[in-house]
Design a protein around this nucleic acid. Structure first.
Lengths: 386, 386
DNA sequence: GACACTTTGTATATCCATTATACAAAGTTT
DNA sequence: AAACTTTGTATAATGGATATACAAAGTGTC
């Protein structure tokens, strides 16, 4: 039994349009809203007044006249509530408190040494509580938390497998939600990153993008029509395990020649270790000092990255490919090799439209995406889009 | 200025729901419709009566009583109009006339030897006219034509490149529409095939599928949430040119190690030629007679197909992968090698959900998908879905 | 067969969004 | 100061959906 149409639905649709327009273009008058949305003046008035009652919008006073009565300017009440975003990495927990526009108002980072789910959960809980304590008073309080996890997450917020954390079948969503007392949403780290860039970063204007989280492994957050493509079980984007070398290096996953064996941070570090370099930071530092070996390693990983990116270009015809996570730090050395490989290996028509860029939110793509997930869940009750 | 909500929209939404339900479950009474859709009895009555006026639905008489007044049974008027589907292959033109439910009521096939767009267009036009002449009289007549082309097609129905036809920048949609006098829709062959299987074939119940057209090359029609994923310019699905062997065989596209160099019909035939076999039919015949060489060739191509399919499984997490076009004919020899390769090379969670099957419409996936495109365009004026 | 009960489908009233119209308030321009 | 503009609200009209009542046409039971 699908959702049918009635007046209530119409109102939801129009209210969504009005609120979205205010969020995107405020400050704005009712008259301007009517012009921009095509809704009748009276309709806009009614809806805006309801939004004001709900504390989601408020009036900031009069604007400039253009030959008549001065308009009352409206703005989105971005501090009507706050959201928490958590990036649950392998070696760290990064947590932020944001307002409803995704602006960071509190941040907290702590190191992690893997460990049992219970212990890590405790730490996450503490981090969230401490951020919550720092949140200014607001009508809605903390509207929810979003967590981005470096692992495979299913539709029910269960972490099926997080190899680098050593987790299997952890009911993260349920456990955290019980402890925190507000809604919790779980996503994998690449999807969270894609959401973050889509909403607040380099992909704000884009529609079809692929966000690549290049760290220990390679994961993709795939966005089609500004919506995450999650796959039938929520497992899509495990693109690091696609084969780019039929009889290539063995991978932990059981396959041979997986992309991430050639293009991930781990794959560079494996080679770097033969040069006596143990940490990614050191390798970056070496490359900065123009060490030919370090630069060569990055050139190699860049070419390998380019191969997989060309595959993405041919498969998805996206308008934008964003490279995120640790590997962004090597941008200056890998950019050219990537572009060369893509130029050689992708089809002209798709390549023309595909921009390749680096994540603009830096290390914060995933954590902001997670926060956005919470914010969007908060609004989703009253939202309908066509 | 987005579409806003009003009563007209509500009516469209509900009418769409009612018509879709009738199409899917007819024969059906108004009372049953009310139950199934959740719409009020009176609303259903009004909408059904309008659909009857529009000749899209009619009453076939009384049904069984279940302890009260007998219901009036309604059915979709599937012959209220007809659609034309054309599969414009490299060596043939296959055209069908279908009713509004996609059932074939006329078919026509002719050989093609490549050639200039003008000549081919003329042939297509003649084929369509001859099918149109055979269509029974109906309220709406021919509602439109859909064409599936073996090449790269953009959003405006321009065939940017059809290497095997030798075409470049042919304004197929405009040219045909002018000549035929009814709406024409152009798709590439893989997208058309995906649509066909989605609507009338093995994917009728599925939501996220990848249809692989494995012929001269390999193209994919990617369906997410029962919608074609077209990419930002309409060029998505050129999956045959993804790299599975970094330094592999050279491809016409300029890349090395493209999947279709190992897993397409052409790639098998290239090997077959060294055995003195010139036609795919011969190779199939040989394999039927259990020729070890022929069977070995198919085993090899099966394994290669499996590699790319595993990549698809990991990337998309689809519920269904359909293998279509010429290669379906080798099903009995390639099925096991494909499954073995996928089992070795894809991640367990995604693999569990991914069924791999062969196109159930056989050689007609694309032509029926093309016809469906025309039908759905005809209905789209009055359709809104949430 | 009479009676009670069900089921179907329509007719009419009510509800509630939007739009249309009118208008008051508060500007600018000449 | 007078004429015109612009903004925002109040009230009526419009057109959908739902709610209610009811007639028509069944079934089942004694």
């Amino acid at each position: 039994m699908q959702t049918t149409g009635d007046q209530h639905l119409v109102k939801k649709i129009n209210k969504t349009i009005v609120l979205d327009t205010i969020i995107k273009h405020s400050p704005l008058s009712r008259a301007q809203l009517s012009d921009m949305t095509g809704l009748h003046k009276g309709t806009v008035s009614t809806l805006v007044n309801e939004l004001i009652d709900e504390k989601l919008v408020y009036e900031i006073g009069l604007g400039r006249s253009s030959g008549g009565r001065k308009p009352v300017m409206l703005v989105f009440h971005k501090t009507a509530g706050y959201a928490v975003g958590v990036d649950l990495g392998v070696r760290y927990i990064l947590a932020v408190l944001t307002d409803l526009e995704g602006r960071i108002v509190g941040e907290l980072q702590l190191d992690l040494e893997g460990g049992e789910p219970e212990g890590v959960l405790k730490l996450v809980e503490e981090a969230v509580h401490s951020l919550k304590a720092g949140a200014p008073p607001s009508p809605y309080g903390i509207v929810g938390a979003g967590i981005g996890v470096a692992g495979i997450v299913d539709d029910n917020g269960i972490v099926l497998l997080a190899p680098n954390l050593g987790w299997e079948n952890v009911e993260l969503q349920r456990l955290l939600q019980e402890k925190l007392g507000f809604p919790v949403a779980i996503d994998n780290e690449a999807n969270a990153g894609a959401l973050g860039e889509l909403q607040y970063g380099a992909a704000r204007e884009a529609s079809d993008i692929v966000y690549l989280s290049v760290g220990t492994g390679i994961g993709a957050g795939i966005v089609i029509g500004r919506q995450l493509m999650k796959g039938s079980g929520g497992f899509s984007g495990e693109i690091g395990h696609t084969t780019i070398e039929t009889n290539g290096k063995k991978c932990r996953c059981g396959n041979k020649g997986c992309w991430e064996q050639y293009a991930s941070e781990s794959s560079v570090m494996e080679k770097a270790r033969t040069l006596g370099i143990g940490k990614f930071d050191e390798l970056i530092a070496l490359a900065r000092r123009e060490s030919p070996e370090a630069v060569r390693l990055f050139h190699e990983v860049g070419e390998s990255l380019g191969i997989g990116i060309a595959n993405i270009v041919n498969t998805f015809n996206p308008e934008l490919i964003l490279i995120g996570n640790q590997m962004t730090r090597a941008e200056q050395w890998i950019r050219n090799p990537i572009e060369r490989a893509v130029a050689h290996r992708s089809l002209p028509y798709s390549r023309q439209q595909a921009q390749i860029r680096f994540a603009s939110l830096d290390t914060h793509s995933a954590v902001l995406g997670a926060a956005h997930h919470a914010i969007s869940a908060f609004f989703s009750k009253d939202r309908v889009t066509l």
